[in-house]
C-alpha cells in the first residue's frame, strides 16, 4: 500500500515537472516497473527476491508493486508506471483476462511489456514484447527421468495430481508420463488429485497406503512440493520411512522441501524457476537495442537432490 502511494505521489511529481525521463537516453540507467501477484506462497516470495536481485546486479532501477492478488491493483500500478514514463514494464498477472485496455495504453506510450509466470489471454500479440514462463512439461520430464534412472526403470508409482484442470498439473503429468512410457516396468498404479495442498496430500496418501500394500509402492510423484510434504507426514505416521522405503519426487523447490530432503524424507525436486527476471531483462535490453525478440521464452529449473539439499536450504533461508 505504502509503495503504491509512493508511486502515485511520484507519478504526480513527474507529471508536474512536465518532462518525462523516458525521453531520449540521457542517463544510462534503465527504469523497469514490476507488478507482482502478491506474496501468497514461499515460491512467490523467492520469485520476487530473485527478480529484485537480478535488477540490482544489472543496475536497473526496479519499481516494485505488490498487487495483493487483485487485478485492479495491478492495472492501477501499470497506469502509474506509464505515467512515470518507465522504460519497460514486467507483469506477473493475477488472472488471464481483462488486460487489453491497459496494455493498449502501454503500447501507445511506447513502453514494452513483458509477461512473466502466468499467462494472459491476448489475441493481439503486439500488445506485449514477450512472455517468460516455466516449461511445466519439461519439469515433468525431468522428474520422470530422474526417477527412471534411480530405479532402473522398474517402479510402481503413486501420483498426487494438482488441482484438476490447472495447466501446471496437466503439463507436468504429460511430461512425466511421456518419459515413463519408454519404460515397460514403470507404471502409475494409483493417481488422485490432492489440490496442490499439504493437507490433501496427506489425506490422499493415507488412503493410498490403506488401499494397497505399502511394500508394493516404489515412489510418490507429486505435482508440487506441498503435496509431497503432506505425503511424507502420512508415510511417517504409517511407520514407513519416506525417501528410503518409498522414494519421493516433486516440483517447485520451496525452502521446506530442501529441509525434508536434507533430513532424508524426500529424494528430489525440480525447481520451478523463480529466475525469470534475467530472461525478462535480457529481452528488454535486446528490444531497446533494436533487436527482435521471441514471443515465448521458456525457463527451466534444475533438479535438486539430497546431496546439495542442506546447502541449498541454508542459502534459501538465509536471505
Amino acid at each position: 500500500m505504502k509503495q503504491l502511494i509512493t508511486l502515485i505521489v511520484s507519478a504526480i511529481a513527474i507529471a508536474g515537472c512536465g518532462s518525462g525521463s523516458s525521453e531520449g537516453g540521457a542517463d544510462d540507467q534503465l527504469t523497469v516497473g514490476f507488478s507482482q501477484v502478491g506474496s501468497e506462497s514461499g515460491w512467490r516470495t523467492s520469485f520476487t527476491q530473485a527478480v529484485q536481485a537480478e535488477a540490482r546486479d544489472r543496475g536497473i532501477d526496479l519499481k516494485f508493486s505488490d498487487a495483493q492478488q487483485k487485478q485492479e491493483n495491478q492495472i492501477r500500478a501499470v497506469r502509474s508506471f506509464i505515467a512515470q514514463g518507465v522504460d519497460a514494464i514486467v507483469i506477473a498477472p493475477v488472472v488471464e483476462t481483462g488486460w487489453k485496455p491497459v496494455l493498449t495504453e502501454a503500447k501507445r506510450a511506447g513502453i514494452p511489456v513483458v509477461i512473466v509466470d502466468r499467462n494472459m489471454a491476448l489475441e493481439d500479440d503486439s500488445l506485449y514484447l514477450t512472455r517468460v514462463a516455466s516449461d511445466f512439461v519439461e519439469e515433468g520430464r525431468k522428474a520422470g527421468r530422474w526417477l527412471m534412472e534411480e530405479t532402473g526403470g522398474d517402479c510402481d508409482i503413486v501420483e498426487l495430481q494438482g488441482t484438476v484442470g490447472a495447466t501446471a498439473a496437466i503439463d507436468r503429468m504429460t511430461g512425466f508420463n511421456e518419459v515413463i512410457a519408454n519404460y515397460p516396468d514403470a507404471e502409475i498404479v494409483m493417481t488422485q488429485t490432492a489440490d496442490f495442498t499439504r493437507a490433501r496430500g496427506k489425506e490422499i496418501m493415507e488412503t493410498f497406503l490403506r488401499a494397497m500394500d505399502p511394500a508394493d509402492i516404489c515412489a510418490v510423484w507429486a505435482h508440487n512440493d506441498e503435496m509431497a510434504l503432506g505425503a511424507v507426514i502420512a508415510m511417517k505416521e504409517a511407520g514407513i520411512d519416506p525417501g528410503d522405503d518409498i522414494l519421493v519426487v516433486s516440483v517447485d523447490a520451496v525452502p521446506d522441501i530442501f529441509k525434508a530432503m536434507a533430513d532424508g524424507d524426500t529424494n528430489a525436486t525440480v525447481e520451478l524457476s523463480p529466475h525469470m527476471g534475467g530472461p525478462a531483462f535480457d529481452a528488454i535490453e535486446a528490444h531497446l537495442r533494436g533487436e527482435s525478440v521471441e514471443k515465448l521464452i521458456s525457463v527451466n529449473g534444475d533438479l535438486f537432490t539430497q546431496e546439495t539439499a542442506a546447502e541449498e536450504y541454508q542459502k534459501r533461508t538465509a536471505g
Binding site: E40, S41, R198, A199, E226, I233
Partner: peptide, 14 residues
C-alpha cells in the same frame, strides 16, 4: 486439528 495434522497453518487452503 487440521493445522496440527500437517504441522503447518495454510491460510489459503485450510
Amino acid at each position: 486439528v487440521a493445522t496440527a495434522d500437517i504441522q503447518g497453518a495454510d491460510a489459503n487452503n485450510v
